[in-house]
Design a protein around this nucleic acid. Structure first.
Length: 424
RNA sequence: GGAGAGGUGGCUGAGUGGUCGAAAGCAGCGGUUUGCUAAACCGUCGUACGGGCCUAAACCUGUACCGGGGGUUCGAAUCCCCCCCUCUCCGCCA
């Protein structure tokens, strides 16, 4: 969502930069805005007349005069005003709908491009391990170890769900605790546990609605949706609130499950647990000062990278090109972890600065002296738990199919190796 | 799920049809006084969207906003209907 007068006064420049994202501004947006303003002016002028006439009636009645005729006359004016008003409202709604569908402006440091092929690698950490045996994918390793079960998940629920057993389940739990501990104790985040369902106003605030309803699971008979990411409840914590500028940045982290219908993703990453309808994530969210939010994006991204490094998982950081960025983002770094089973780097965290785009939709401000302005919001995964699970199982697999647990995680898992019962 | 009470500006809280965008107090901001702090006094103090205005600030002006939506009325914070939320009690479940 844009600032209206900024949008109006810089329409050409905005259209040009949005073209980099592959987005074409609706042609009639300027015309509808002009019509909308004309209608508003017209309707408000008539209402001003009505209000003045009503005040006169009040005075006359106080003086004891008979005002029946004047009242009768105003009835008709009132009806006309109501018509104008609904016409203005309809145009305004049409305009707001168009505006709500316009994606955020990319930051100037974002490389122009059409797709993920134009993303630019920024850095690389760690060396992909050289195996002296052919490494397996997690969808072979997990079931063989008895820690991952797709058949029963399909039975009790359906496709794209997984059941974790024994140390597989505990590994998931260990990762959550490890992530939360590192971020709260060492990176300065405050922990929060939000509801796993949100209302539609929250989804509008962070930009999932109105455009991306098809990606969400909605509960029947209520205005509740399962959250697609903790970003939604956590960013909306301060919706319609005014914070103190001096208190920024506010850094929050939250563990939640996430639910995505992944409509239209058929054929991509369908094997294993890389793309599931339900997965877990520890999310980092920042409410930042507008003048320093890009420093906060660097810090947040580093915080996510830090946990990858502690787990000894090779990764690279890429900056998304204009054509690959999310709807609300002004700049996004993806962290991609090395997966030997797939023989490629795979997204495990996506760290974005939304600037004031979400704050304006959700009305999150900060006060500095007399002035209030919209804050900048940021978030990133720190990290996606299921993907980390995959990365550990695949990167630390042994020739016999067992998995050696990295040092940092052992106190959390209470085990050094995951072995299947039949492998001993 | 049942019964009751409530929702008004940053906060507390008045307001049952017109002079109410809304008393009063607190907090905030500006100032006077003061050796400093404190106090006292004076002033100021909501948001959004239009217009004046080609652009920006300031200012002036209009409209809307008293939980949300609809209705009655020339006129609604106030009357009517629906919904949401909070609190108390009961039931149910953990």
């Amino acid at each position: 969502m844009y600032d209206l007068s900024y949008f109006r006064n810089n329409l050409e420049a905005i259209a040009r930069r949005l073209a980099d994202r592959g987005y074409t501004l609706p042609e009639d947006i300027r015309r509808i805005d002009a019509e909308r303003r004309a209608a508003i002016t017209e309707s408000e002028q008539l209402k001003a007349q009505l209000n003045a006439a009503s005040r006169e009636i009040a005075e006359l009645r106080r003086a004891g005069a008979d005002t029946t005729a004047r009242q009768q006359a105003l009835r008709e004016t009132r009806a006309r005003a109501a018509e104008l008003e609904s016409k203005a409202a309809a145009l305004d709604e049409q305009f707001q709908r168009l505006l709500a569908g316009v994606p955020n402006l990319p930051h100037e440091s974002v490389p122009a491009g059409r797709s993920s092929a134009d993303n630019v690698e920024i850095r690389r950490w760690g060396e992909p391990r050289k195996f002296d045996f052919p490494p397996k994918a997690h969808w072979d390793l997990g079931p063989a170890l008895g820690i991952l079960d797709f058949e029963r998940a399909a039975k009790i629920t359906g496709a794209r769900f997984a059941v974790y057993w024994d140390l597989g389940a505990k590994l998931e739990r260990a990762l959550i605790n490890f992530f939360l501990d590192v971020h709260t104790k060492e990176h300065g985040y405050r922990e929060v546990l939000p509801p796993f369902m949100v209302n539609s106003a929250s989804l509008y605030g962070t930009g999932q609605l109105p455009k991306f309803a098809a990606d969400l699971f909605k509960l029947e008979g209520a205005d509740y949706f399962l959250i697609p990411t903790a970003e939604v409840p956590v960013t909306n914590l301060y919706r319609e609130e005014t914070l103190e500028m001096d208190a920024l940045p506010i850094s929050l982290c939250a563990y939640t499950p996430c639910f995505r219908s992944e409509a239209g993703s058929y054929g991509r990453d369908v094997r294993g647990i890389i793309r599931q309808h339900q997965f877990q994530k520890v999310e980092l969210v920042k409410f930042a000062r507008p003048d320093s939010s890009y420093q906060d994006l660097e810090k947040l991204t580093r915080d996510a990278e830090d946990v990858l490094e502690r787990l000894g998982l090779p990764y690279r950081r890429v900056v998304l090109s204009t054509g690959d960025m999310g709807f609300a983002s002004a700049k996004t770094y993806d962290l991609e972890v090395w997966l030997p089973g797939l023989n490629e780097y795979k997204e495990i965290s996506s760290c974005s600065n939304f600037e004031a785009f979400q704050a304006r939709r959700a009305s999150i401000r900060a006060r500095a002296g007399k002035k209030t302005e919209f804050v900048h919001t940021l978030n990133g995964s720190g990290l996606a738990v299921g993907l980390t699970w995959v990365a550990i199982v695949e990167n630390y697999q042994q020739a016999d199919g067992s998995v050696v647990i990295p040092q940092a995680l052992r106190p959390y898992l209470g085990a050094e190796v995951i072995r299947g019962a039949n492998l001993d």
